[in-house]
Design a protein around this nucleic acid. Structure first.
Lengths: 113, 113
DNA sequence: TTTGTACTTTCCTGTGTAGTTAATTAACCG
DNA sequence: CGGTTAATTAACTACACAGGAAAGTACAAA
């Protein structure tokens, strides 16, 4: 398997869990510690810690240590890789996806926010 | 979990396997029987049959029976749901993703190819 | 009606993963 | 230092899943 394919596997595996998707959604509202991430869920802290690890391995989040807190932050690359992967279904999903094409072209030009 | 979230879980689970992603990619080049799908892979037919079943449950493919052959065809909805889910990361992935917004708006209007 | 073709299902094995509690590490604070 | 807080690691259970071999199903053709 190619490198990209392996990372896609890790990304989709990470996204396949509802708790992990909820963690990602939470992180769009800003950084959070593992404890803060765990709060809304009815599972133990170790369980969340493991989810965070899976997300980290997939490159979807980045953890920085500040004192005894681990602050988690979203990383965009794997989601962009998913968009890139979806590219091959452009014709299939419809011509409107050409707009996604344009988006990807902009990305390649380094046209970032 | 909501219905959409459950179907997203099934979709991402299906996409998390490289063999299944390869099967989907093959199907962009047209319909194929299970036997034809199995050909490029170094695994048994029952293994492929099970992969097909997972893809089917996720709604990513549709099987129609013709004599003793099962012809498989791609279904677009789950991939569109993934695009919709990615929507929430628009700000995060960059303003260029506004174009994806437009694509989704078109979809809602029933503006299909 | 037997034989062959195209799968699918069943049963089994090994491996991965989600969850738990309890123990451990790491850093800060009095 | 000792205690507290934040999070990870360890050890375990339960279950899902990828794979194979072998048996079963469904249709076609001789």
């Amino acid at each position: 398997m190619t490198v990209e394919a392996e990372s896609l596997t890790a990304t989709f595996t990470a996204l396949a869990d509802p708790t992990r998707r909820a963690i990602l959604a939470r992180l769009t509202r800003g950084e959070a510690t593992v404890g803060q991430l765990a709060e809304p869920f009815d599972v133990s802290l170790p369980a969340i810690s493991k989810h965070v690890k899976v997300l980290q391995k997939a490159g979807l989040i980045e953890q920085t240590r500040r004192a005894q807190w681990r602050s988690c932050r979203l990383r965009p690359e794997p989601l962009r890789d998913v968009v890139t992967w979806m590219e091959q279904y452009r014709d299939f999903l419809g011509d409107s996806l050409d707009r996604l094409d344009q988006y990807l072209a902009d990305l390649q030009k380094g046209d970032r926010p």
